[in-house]
Computed example of a mutant assay.
Amino acid sequence: AGAFVVQVASSCPLATNGSVLAFEFTLVFNKNPLVCYDPDSQRFTPCDWGLLHGVATSVATMLNKDMAWLERAQSRHRACQQLATSFWATTGLRRTPPQVRIIPSKTGPTASPVLLTCYVWGFYPSEVTVIWLHNGVVVEPEDHSYMSTIPNGDWTYQIQVTMLVTPRAGDTFTCSVQHASLEQPLLVNWSPGLSSGLVLKVAMATVVMVLGLGFFILGAYHYCIRPPAAGYTPLPGDTYPAGN
């Protein structure tokens, strides 16, 4: 023998502006709607028109005679109307600012172009504008590719925009994000690192500078501690011993 499950399900579908579109209060038998509540007539009606239609009609008649069930459905309907505004204000009308990060990926040898990916995530609502800038100049949209905005599953969204570049020393690439939660665009910069040759030159210059500074300090120290020359006549207030 199989198992039988009866459930009570209620829902309030909302429009994009937060208004209540409908109210549903249903008795479900083995995942199939059996009896539905009509908020206009405030009565239960059968909503199974198959083999269980007769059973659904009998159950609906029984529920319409039970004031506890009628009051239960009406209470759910009132709660739907009352809670929809506050629920929508904390969900559909909220503003969550995005987080932004630029990740570079090499496409080959050192001299090859670099694929820059601007990751934007954790924002709500879903409308967002992402722009690339090169040294402060807006990059045309045809020079980079978009990924469609996708939901994260927690009422936030994410998007990524990629651009293939051949950076030079001194270049700055900026990912600019505009969103309803931001008073001004959110800017994140990326610049290429020093080349290996330039890194070696900087390291050598640093070593030479440190050695030079060390020799200077050592020479100054020996100069200060040396005894005065023979025949030296100290000036008034001088602490050096008198010469011979």
Rank of each mutant, 00 (worst) to 15 (best):
W49T: 11
E71L: 10
W155N: 13
A79K: 06
L182E: 02
E142I: 10
R72Y: 11
M147I: 09
W121D: 13
V55K: 14
F44D: 02
N64C: 08
S181I: 02
M62D: 15
K201F: 10
V202M: 10
G18V: 15
C118T: 09
I131F: 13
M62I: 15
M147V: 12
Q99W: 00
T233N: 09
Y119L: 13
N64D: 08
L70I: 01
V6N: 15
L52E: 06
I217V: 13
S126R: 14
A111D: 06
L187W: 07
F29K: 13
T85V: 08
L194R: 11
S191W: 07
A229Y: 06
N152L: 14
L187M: 11
G193Q: 03
S145V: 09
N189C: 15
G231A: 14
C36Q: 02
S148I: 09
V120L: 10
H222Y: 13
T166A: 14
P104H: 04
R76Q: 05
K31D: 08
T206F: 13
V8W: 14
P39Y: 02
V130Q: 04
L27S: 01
S105E: 11
P241E: 13
P46V: 03
A111K: 05
H179S: 07
L51E: 09
L63C: 07
Q178T: 08
L218P: 03
Q74E: 05
